[in-house]
Nucleic acid binder design. Structure first.
Lengths: 209, 209, 209, 209
DNA sequence: TATGAATGAGAGTTCATTCAT
DNA sequence: AATGAATGAACTCTCATTCAT
């Protein structure tokens, strides 16, 4: 438990996050902190006061993303058709990626610890419920778990950063195949059980191989 | 058309590739050429003589990987059961990734041009045939094309670099779902047509977004 | 319009200039920035913070030189005898070169743009006046212009970097011949008109052939 | 006394010189030996066999230049008007510089030893005679010596490498002034005596300050 | 507290020169 | 004798991070 930030400190924090977001979106994760700080209109050292190192700034950005994704999941719960809600959630959160170069780096670049922490508390309850209801309604194979959803997103998002004139929305095709796999009337036994909640957090939190 | 390298040059070239492979596997793509050269037992400048810049060394490594994958595809053609051959190929080539940290960076890191070039000539004919036969035998949905196979691999491989004690082979679970999507008796229309051969090459060859 | 440097930054800037001056004087312009920084007692990156690249460090050095030469020109204006003032100025500024190996490289090495810019604003007015008064007093041939003075210096300074036991002050002999050419009672028509002010700046500012 | 080169060795020597000349003219003295060797169609090591180091290749190039200049001096002796001959020689040899970027670097870059050696044996006798006759005919001030001529050239040539649209032939203007200084009817005493032959060689032969 | 300055380790790359074929 | 390969030191420049103002 920590005291809230002073007003100006909080403002600088927001400015830095917004600046980082813009700069990462424009140039990828490799830009230096100097540039981000300049973009935010603060000094570098101020950035270091707010975020002990660059990775933590990146993590904080993640937190914001996860919050948006969590909001999407909660909206999805409003759907009567559970399957439509689940699919709509997956698609909407993948669409977030198409507007942010560097976002996948963010999610895939070994920052999993933060992702997992955030995701557990904010995202998982809603997803668990989406999954439960879709299975209840017989639209989702019974051998999947709510922990599978983020991993499926992790997988499909890899396609969203392909470039060139034919790549736009190409990920939707492969998501289509995956979705057919999720509601197939003839599911084959999967070679591995799903991660349980603890293993899920540990896995996303682990450094990348 | 260029004359073959002199014996010593060729030996050093191999040493450099092997060293790069090991060092990339151990530490990721960001290691400096100095370290690679030292690991190979040659001077830095020798590395620059063999590979005009670092990207070309990475590309050369790719060529070797693609060659191995192409060999796997050709072996897969020997299977009587076309579906088993196709799945075996996909699994075997994904297994290559589990032993190499940095390999995904290699494939995803904007070196697509080289990948596409190599892949087109070496890999696509065999894969096309694998797909054709699996469809002929009724084991693979009719609306997929051979260009879908590498993209599916691209997708699943994203999972293969997760770390931690539960991540080993986790990709197999999600590949299972995808495979069920590929042979579902009730395929839904996919929202996008497959890439044709030309668009495929162009897409993998394009710089990443 | 830029705010003045912080005290420590300014001090390091001066240290770097002084170090560069000494090191260039001792070893010529080809020394690396590492050595200059070490000599100045600062890190390399500090040098790069103060001078975005090596050429700009060299340019800054030039500015200082030009400032000193401009001061000499202004002192020369105090002379009652205009010819003596002009000659004194030329000699004094050439003497600056004898203490600095690398200074000619500085002036001749394609850094003319900076030189020209500085020279125009700081040096030319005084030189113009020196020339005008010497002509008024009948001591300087009428067909020379103030733009000729720096070019004559450029010419004579080439001799000031000769080495060996007999080279000290040898340039004075040839300057003597040139001065005799400037006050000859029988001037022959010169094959080219002088540069006007604009062409002068353009010429010194152009990259060397 | 050394045996003449084998025919192929001599051919390579010539090729290297020609290549160096072209490449230096095009890109300045800073090009690497690899490029020169490639341009000459031989291996680098062959260049090192013919010229123990890069400086000696440069020196050998100088020898060729000096030979051409010596030829100009001998032609100049044919003039009846000794002054015209002398001036013609000076102008002609300066014109050689306008076609070769990097030639001044060659002459000024600390390669004086070679220059002096060559010049002494090949150039000085003719120049000495040109000077003697011009003085005999009363067209050249009595206090100059033949050793002054190359130094005057050294001086004027500094102007020949200025760039930009107004620089072509600009050196002729300043040579005009110098020439007026050489034939002024009112020579002032020069502050230094000329170099004698021995000092001249020693001075040009010394490393640059 | 917030700033800009400073840092040193390390990146990629080049070059004159020597060695092995 | 001639070649191309190999070398290592040096170069310019960048970045995440710490320090002094």
């Amino acid at each position: 438990m920590q005291r809230p930030l002073r007003a100006d400190a909080a403002r600088n924090r927001e400015r830095l996050l917004a600046a980082a977001d813009e700069v990462f979106a424009a140039k990828g994760l490799s830009v230096g902190l100097d540039e981000i700080a300049r973009h935010a209109g603060v000094g570098v050292a101020t950035a270091y006061r707010r975020f002990p190192d660059k990775a933590l700034l990146v993590d904080a950005l993640l937190e914001d993303r996860v919050a948006r994704i969590a909001a999407l999941a909660e909206e999805a719960l409003a759907h009567d058709d559970a399957w439509a809600g689940l699919v709509g959630f997956i698609e909407a959160s993948l669409e977030l990626h198409t507007s942010h170069r560097g976002l996948k780096e963010l999610l895939f670049g070994g920052h999993g610890a933060a992702l997992a922490t955030r995701a557990r508390s904010r995202l998982m309850p809603a997803v668990r419920e989406l999954v439960r209801r879709a299975q209840e309604q017989g639209q989702l194979r019974a051998d999947v778990e709510f922990t599978d959803v983020p991993l499926i997103q992790l997988m499909v998002v890899a396609l969203s950063e392909l470039g060139g004139p034919h790549a736009d929305g190409l990920w939707r095709r492969y998501l289509g195949i995956v979705l057919d796999g999720l509601r197939t009337p003839e599911p084959r036994p999967l070679p591995r059980p799903p991660l349980d909640a603890a293993a899920f957090v540990e896995t996303l939190g682990a450094p990348r191989r």
